[in-house]
Design a protein around this nucleic acid. Structure first.
Ligand code: ZN
Ligand code: ZN
Ligand code: ZN
Ligand code: ZN
Lengths: 140, 140
DNA sequence: ATGGCACACGTTATAGCATAACGCAATTGA
DNA sequence: TCAATTGCGTTATGCTATAACGTGTGCCAT
């Protein structure tokens, strides 16, 4: 039905939400997404949250806990750790000046945290790593 | 088990909020704290948030971003990294079954993230590390 | 002492984030 | 076909956090 299909498995609402995040140059809150999609028939927060839940489950979108906001995954189709969408634990550097978000993966950090968890008998399900600060461009 | 001695520099409201967190066996939301302190004259969220802001600034309380909740610092008077209250970047393992929180510090993780930031010209101000999962006791 | 300042406090109102609960429609698969 | 599942739309509600206003108190430079 829809030409610009991002992922054929996505529903219409999911596609709209993902494309909104993908077009954005920074993280968006659920309510900001809602406002952007009112012209496409979105009327209530749940329409956004339900799509975000699925997109997050698919690994196409990440939630930034320290911002209560969401970003499209920057890793696209690359795979390095063989987990799900293409990465194990992912980390974010969030510029508090320009809102730019850098998504990255650090094996060493991942392994150290895994080791710590093993040593404590703790079974991780999801790990959040977010660095707030000032990006290179804004520091200049 | 908990040191009854709070920082003498604390105001009455700050002491009350800190003691509530210190008594708790898990993270508390600001509104939960508010409810616990109604008998002590607390009437509005701002009374709690203002105290939490200061306590966080003092390093006596940590905010768990993935829970929108707060915990008393588990490090007490120990100092290992020479920063502020006694630690640099701190990490948390949060049990999704029993809500127990383990606070820890991992030099290696800290240094790797610092190195990454340096290499990208990113100036960190605050780093959040939170592992959600199942603790040893609950996994048994 | 007195004016100015910084800071904590109290209160009301509002903004921002997230989910509960209902019913309906389309899809799937036994 | 019929039940189960999933997505959808809507209304209402709940949880989290801050804005904006004013009060009082201690401190200190004038
Ligand atoms: Zn990603
Ligand atoms: Zn920036
Ligand atoms: Zn601590
Ligand atoms: Zn547990």
């Amino acid at each position: 039905m829809n030409a610009p299909i991002v992922n054929p498995a996505l529903t219409k609402n999911q596609s709209l939400v993902f494309e909104a995040l993908d077009r954005a140059d920074g993280p968006l809150s659920a309510y900001t997404i809602l406002d952007k999609l009112r012209d496409h028939g979105f009327r209530a927060p749940l329409q956004v949250y339900r799509a975000l839940d699925k997109l997050t489950e698919f690994g196409m979108v990440h939630r930034l806990e320290s911002l209560n906001a969401f970003v499209a995954c920057a890793h696209r189709e690359s795979a390095c750790c063989g987990k799900g969408h293409g990465h194990g634990t992912v980390a974010f550097a969030i510029c508090e000046s320009c809102s730019q978000v850098l998504e990255f993966h650090d094996h060493e950090v991942d392994h150290h945290l895994s080791d710590w968890a093993s040593s404590k008998g703790f079974k991780p399900s999801k790990t959040t790593i977010e660095i707030r600060g000032i990006c290179q461009k804004c520091a200049a």
